[in-house]
Amino acid sequence: MSTTLTHSWFMTMRHLRNLARQPWWIAITLVQPVIWLLLFGAVFKATADIPGFAADSYVDFLTPGIVVMTAAFAGGWAGMGVIEDLNRGVIDRFLVSPVRRPALITGRLVQLGIVSLIQSLIVIGLGLLIGARFPGGVVGLAVLVGCSALLGGSLGALSNGMALLARKEETVIAASNFVLLPLTFLSSAFMQRDLVPGWIQSVARYNPVEWTVQAGREALTVSPDWGLVLSRASLLAVLCAACTWLATRAFRSYQRSI
């Protein structure tokens, strides 16, 4: 176990270092959620005027949604890095070494989590700047960011696993495109739950994006229902662990196919 942790850290360092060498990638990654926040905030501003909309301003409501969405998208696209490593033979080199298989996945997920954390802080900071208020304070924000990281980790692990099975950039792109937007809109990221059609409410119950949004928003209220927060956070933790396990198993399928 401790070897797996050490190996994960070595891999995390590798991924972080490689990221740090791509200034354009960093710029785009950091600016994108800002654009989402400003854009969605402007387009859906009138939402706050809908009768029955509980939040005082739409920015209060939207900011946690954008944090979650950002984490989900970063996770969904994570498989692209695996494809690159596969094409360059880097994965094969590690697979014939004594490196622990889970570390090849968790190293990527930890890097993803660190990037997500930075993105979240930027979105939250900007939200505060344009007038969003979070009564739940620092604890609430920590829950939001933590749950988002678990969501990003789950989708990231799935994306990595799929990349190992499909081994094609096109497949990862198609699958991410196919899944990410619907997953985001089949949740209350942008719209209060009791204001969307009943079927979406039903579907959302099984949507991990919705679990994350629920946990985050609840933790940010004046007096959170911690039972609800805990139940959603636990679901996300279990999901993340299961997806990581699946992604690690995908190495076997990959090795069987070559």
Partner: peptide, 26 residues
Amino acid sequence: LVAQRSGVDLEGTGRENLTLQGQVYG
């Protein structure tokens, strides 16, 4: 193993590549 299509991480330096490989072997 020196594989046919290499295994060098092109984004890393020579020293970083070697160091990581060494770390993997303890």
